[in-house]
């Protein structure tokens, strides 16, 4: 039916154009909005492909949760000072697009020469209607054959939660000093070690002061034993 193809082409056209817009936009907020448009269109495509449940999930999880999260972080990161990201590396853009085109060609060859061998399964339009629709069908398959992946995915989400909580948690002894943000740790990891002299010397008095009566472990370079912002600040103040 031509109408179906027409709708598909329209949806995918919008999706591709807005995806392209996403990577071209100067402002990352605009990029995010373009990505939302793409995702919504993709969700519509999912419905055409008999995946109503996934279409809803796509909207809720991607558009609803992940992108809003990204936007949220984007706002946190000082939106006034967003640097100009474009035009700095023309060579990279040329090569990037070049690689993309070649890979697209390679995938296109694969698509066009593909032969189908898979045996058709029972989940045609009628098959799904027989159990009450896509959601019911997915539910049946998911909870009969995919118990282990569900459990495992739950654990992945738990791991991610714990990790994110750790990364995002403010430091316990942190003082919100404005200057702290600009402190950059000196790179201590140059291969030749030639910049060793730049490291602020930590006198033992300094350490005692900081660590109280506890014995403090120190490393000369490239490790958290030395290069906390506090240490660096002290070094600079002296």
């Amino acid at each position: 039916m031509a109408a179906e193809v027409l709708v598909f082409n329209l949806l995918s056209g919008i999706a591709i154009v807005s995806a392209a817009a996403m990577i071209m936009m100067r402002n990352p907020v605009h990029s995010a909005i373009a990505l939302v448009i793409t995702f919504v269109n993709v969700a519509a495509v999912f419905i055409m492909l008999r995946a109503e449940f996934l279409a809803v999930v796509q909207i809720i999880v991607y558009t609803g949760a992940i992108l809003v999260l990204i936007l949220f972080v984007l706002m946190l990161v000082n939106p006034d000072e967003l640097p100009d990201f474009h035009g700095a590396r023309p060579m990279q853009q040329i090569f990037g697009f070049g690689l993309g085109i070649i890979l697209l060609a390679e995938i296109a060859v694969a698509i066009l020469t593909r032969t189908v061998v898979a045996e058709p399964g029972p989940w045609t339009e009628d098959g799904m209607a027989a159990v009450g629709g896509n959601v019911q069908a997915i539910g049946q398959v998911l909870y009969s054959g995919y118990v282990l992946p569900i459990q495992a995915t739950a654990l992945v989400l738990l791991a991610a939660t714990i990790g994110a909580l750790f990364l995002g948690r403010p430091d316990e002894d942190e003082e919100p000093t404005p200057s702290r943000r600009t402190v950059a740790t000196i790179s201590l990891a140059h291969t030749r070690g030639s910049d060793q002299d730049e490291i602020p010397a930590l006198s033992s008095a300094n350490i005692k002061h900081e660590a109280g009566d506890r014995d403090l472990i120190m490393a000369r370079d490239a490790d958290e034993f030395t290069s906390t912002p506090e240490d660096d600040q002290k070094g600079q103040q002296e």
Binding site: F8, G96, L104
Partner: peptide, 20 residues
């Protein structure tokens, strides 16, 4: 082929974005 090309196109666009 329709959705395969859509998929490939979006994948490539994403990749190019990561690259640039």
């Amino acid at each position: 082929e329709h959705f395969m090309f859509l998929s490939a196109a979006l994948f490539i666009i994403g990749m190019v974005g990561v690259l640039t």
